[in-house]
Nucleic acid binder design. Structure first.
Lengths: 195, 195
DNA sequence: GTCTATATAAGGATAGAC
DNA sequence: GTCTATCCTTATATAGAC
């Protein structure tokens, strides 16, 4: 991903994304980031006023990436019910690939206690977008099947959201995958599907 | 809670519990802890070899306190179904009282990425105990009602656990209480109770 | 824009007197 | 056990040359 033509700012951001996620925000220093990115401290501060500014851009960048990936995945499945049912297995595979480090936005919220900070606002914003994507997916599902028409869209959406977040958090704590086996069953039950 | 007869070690631990939870582990320095506890740095290091050792004792102490509180709450409700249904509202009130700072053990896991560290082991241990308490509560419930006998104890337990963790995490991100309104409904549905 | 060198504060941890 | 004083490292951030 990083070659000689990559701009300094992109190199920094790319490296920060990796390190902040893998090690945590407060545990990662500027020095390590610039060492790994292969740039100087002066160059860093010419692109970012403070570490918090980098932290904010990290979240924004990561949010775009995750949401884009999610939208692309869902758009490739035509059948609404299949789309709904494949959501959880996809998150499961993603969690495995991240070494069970959990949700970047929840992790950041744990490290930045000030609920009014821009960083926390960005984390909240990501979840709102995430929730919106889920809501649209479920709206399509309810519209596609007369048997599901009477279900409460917002309620199912929020239950679905909580199941995913709960599974990601539990997988992080236990460093195990079973939360997703249960999550798959739970989302089936949400729409009265046999498990 | 802290008076002149409180031992130095207890003063440090008590203060650390407050600060680590409210501000996060890596964002809280030894200096702030000893300042607020009113003890010296030398006294601190005569009781704790390292900051990590204090972090570990913080988790142990907090785990005991939370689990004891939970057990006491549950033991005061005689009817198994009522006990089950009152669990979520109790967590909800607790989350409100903590200013939506979420689960201390999940937060710590977000800050300490090394899954093999003693701190992470302690967080995992807390969740295992938490899960055991839930399992016993649900075992009593299933035994008390013939209509519930056929339900899968472990499955309901893990679903219940994920609902609670998901609600706590979502409440922390959004700084709102609605995840618990949904959680209450979800735990009812788990045992085929009308919402 | 990018570099090296430096400023300044805070981090965790230790030494030695009482 | 507790204190003050100090060590060493690392943190974020800046200054000034190229």
């Amino acid at each position: 991903m990083i070659d000689k033509r990559t701009s300094t700012k992109d190199k920094i951001l790319h490296t920060a994304c990796e390190l902040f996620y893998a090690q945590g925000y407060n545990a990662t220093g500027i020095q390590q980031i610039i060492d790994q990115a292969g740039v100087s401290k002066g160059a860093f501060y010419s692109h970012f006023k403070t570490k918090d500014e980098l932290g904010l851009e990290y979240l924004k960048s990561r949010s775009e990436e995750e949401l884009e990936h999610l939208r692309a995945f869902l758009s490739e499945i035509d059948d609404p019910k299949e789309r709904y049912l494949q959501f959880t297995p996809m998150i499961k595979e993603w969690v495995k690939s991240t070494d069970y480090r959990g949700c970047a936005f929840a992790n950041m919220s744990a490290e930045v206690p000030n609920g009014q900070s821009p960083i926390r606002a960005e984390a909240k914003h990501h979840y709102e977008e995430f929730r919106t994507i889920i809501k649209e997916m479920i709206r399509d599902l309810l519209a596609s099947d007369p048997a599901l028409k009477s279900l409460d869209l917002q309620y199912i959406t929020d239950q679905f959201l909580m199941i995913q977040i709960g599974a990601i958090a539990n997988a992080e704590i236990f460093q195990e995958i079973w939360p997703f086996e249960h999550a798959e069953k739970a989302v089936r039950l949400l729409i009265n599907e046999q498990v």
